[in-house]
Amino acid sequence: MAGGNATTLLDAKTLVKTRALMGNALRQICRVSALALILGSMAMVPVTVQAQPRAGHAKAAVAPKPDAKPAKASPRRQKSAEGARRAAEAENTNGFNIDGRRVRVDVVKAETDMLGPDGRAPAVLILHGAHGLGDGSLFYPQAKALAERGITAFVVHYFDGIPQARKAAPTLHDERERVIAEAVSYVSKQAYVDAERIGVFGLSLGGFHALSLGSRDQRIQAVVNVVGAMPSEVQRRGVHRMPPTLVMHGDRDATVPVRRAYELASLLGEIGAEHEVKIYKGEGHTFRGDAKEDSITRTVDFFERHLGGDRGLLDKELEIDIALAPVVPETEMLPIRELTIADEALWAMAEQGNSQPGN
């Protein structure tokens, strides 16, 4: 009996040890299996590791995906003309519609005590250049100066009527001129405007349009052109009439060369149009300082003479000094049709930023 009990106890201890060893082995197998499952799932999911740049080293550019859309370029930030508009006390009008597009028009009305007996005043349309109004400093002060001398000024946002992106493109000349002609009609219908006394002031691209419109629109009674010129295509078609015209230009203008002003003076002389020319020495495509102030004063004086209520009496009783174009060497004074500075080249230069802001 005793021997049998000893044998039984020995078998029990062996069984316990065997079960313990089997349990440890099973747990090890489970751990290995779990680890294998985890590693297998990680292999199925792509992992992107983004390396961080070291200090002092630029971050490497990430190549775009083949089907990725190109990033949109940020639009060029336009300067605000709101400050200049408020300073000139310009009012927003209802403007007018053309082909379903609203064209904004700001007005600076003539001083009340300078209106005629019928409550109406002469009017001048102000046309901006290829870069729009810019900060407004080249246009609203001019409008204010006109209003202080009894002439109502309208600043026309004529680009509003052009749906194309490159609104100053030479190919859109006729479209822009149609908008400006509609602006003349709008101004002439205002109850406080004398439709028989309307002038146009244009700077750069606006000057080109002021001259072009004045050559064919009988409603325009006076034109002031600042650093613009007669469009080449208009010259090719033929110019046979122009109202009294003031031409102002800088002799260092790299966008619209000063010889375009000489060319214009020659044309005005040939057709017998009354004109004045002022060339500012040392000035470029934008007048500054004393030249800018002088150009504003000359503009007001010119329109007052030719649009004022006593314009007929002034013409008869006062001796008005009409400045002629400067003498130009014969080598430069070629016939007009042979001066072929393409307007397209001027606009290309302007769009590349060679011209001053606001032109």
Rank of each mutant, 00 (worst) to 15 (best):
G116L: 11
Y186W: 13
G214C: 10
R178L: 07
A123M: 05
A181Q: 00
Y192F: 15
S137G: 03
H128M: 06
R166E: 14
L138V: 03
T152Y: 05
F139H: 14
Y186H: 07
H173S: 11
A195M: 05
G132N: 04
S215G: 14
M114L: 14
F159N: 04
A181I: 03
A210K: 10
L203F: 15
P170E: 00
L138R: 13
L125D: 09
R178G: 03
G228W: 03
R216Y: 13
P141A: 04
P122T: 04
I220S: 06
V200Y: 07
L172A: 01
V155F: 07
E177Q: 07
K167E: 12
P141E: 08
H131Y: 01
I162N: 02
S137F: 05
S215E: 15
A130D: 09
V179M: 06
G116R: 11
D194N: 13
L125H: 02
T152M: 12
S215T: 15
I162E: 00
A143Y: 03
D160Q: 04
A147L: 07
F159L: 01
V179D: 05
G214W: 05
A229Y: 05
T152E: 09
M114R: 14
D135P: 11
R197K: 15
Y140G: 02
P117L: 10
V155L: 15
